[in-house]
């Protein structure tokens, strides 16, 4: 136990406790959180957005602008990892030790054939699960992000079995920049279409449910694709 750290933690804890115990009780139906802006989402969300899952409605329609920059944050993480020095000696920031390690060949631990078989067998089923989450996200829990994470999980599992470089080859080099940026680009496109249709940036035509649904689905696919590729790429970059 380090006394100074403990003191600091207590100094932070005290105001936080004071802050949270003085909030309105969280279960009560008359708490501000249940009488504020959420009332309208619950009352008119389905009719205005066509999404029965109101979390999706908030994410894509009411507060789509937040989600736009949320996917930009994941892209930032990827750009950050790509901008860091590599292990090559030609790189001024690179360390010689890492270069030697890279020249040494891959340091992948051999995987048991059973695991390898199971992973390859499971991959299509996991992909189906991800697609189900993706396309049912407006009525059931789940959506683009969850699908993205499962897609990435498939990539990572295959990567552990086959080696990251072989998995990286699954995505052609020419497509890579576009797939990585799929989520923000999808948002920008939908924002422009919404601007054209409704006169408001990222607007959804509230009276046309077919158009709304198509735009929402396009966003979800963009998020799933872009998010999945980025998470998988992060894995490949860290492995190699």
């Amino acid at each position: 136990m380090k006394p100074w750290s403990l003191l600091l933690v207590l100094l932070v804890a005290l105001p936080l406790v004071v802050g949270v115990v003085n909030l309105p009780p969280h279960d009560a139906p008359d708490a501000p959180i249940h009488t504020g802006v959420g009332v309208r989402y619950l009352a008119r969300g389905v009719e205005e957005t066509g999404n029965k899952n109101l979390v999706t409605a908030v994410l894509l329609n009411y507060r789509g602008f937040d989600t736009f920059f949320e996917v930009v944050v994941i892209f930032t993480a990827l750009a950050a990892v790509l901008a860091l020095p590599r292990g090559s000696a030609a790189d001024p920031g690179g360390a010689p030790a890492a270069a030697a390690k890279a020249a040494n060949g891959s340091d992948i631990v051999p995987v048991s054939p059973v695991v390898s078989y199971v992973v390859r067998l499971m991959a299509p089923f996991m992909a189906m699960f991800a697609l189900a989450m993706l396309f049912r996200g407006h009525v059931t829990p789940g959506g683009g992000f969850q699908a993205a994470a499962v897609f990435a999980a498939i990539f990572i599992a295959l990567g552990l079995v086959l080696g990251p470089t072989r998995v990286a080859e699954l995505v052609p080099d020419d497509w890579r920049p576009w797939l990585q940026g799929a989520a923000p680009l999808a948002f920008a496109l939908i924002a422009a279409i919404g601007w054209r249709l409704t006169g408001a940036f990222l607007g959804f035509p509230t009276d046309d449910h077919t158009a709304q649904e198509a735009m929402g689905l396009f966003l979800e696919v963009g998020i799933a694709l872009g998010g999945g590729v980025i998470l998988a790429r992060l894995f490949v970059e860290m492995e190699t």
Partner: peptide, 21 residues
């Protein structure tokens, strides 16, 4: 908050681009 994160995350990375260590 979301914009703060975009700014902060890119700043952390920009500090590190110049070298390892």
């Amino acid at each position: 908050f979301v914009f703060t994160e975009v700014v902060s995350l890119s700043s952390y990375a920009l500090v590190a681009v110049g070298g390892r260590g």
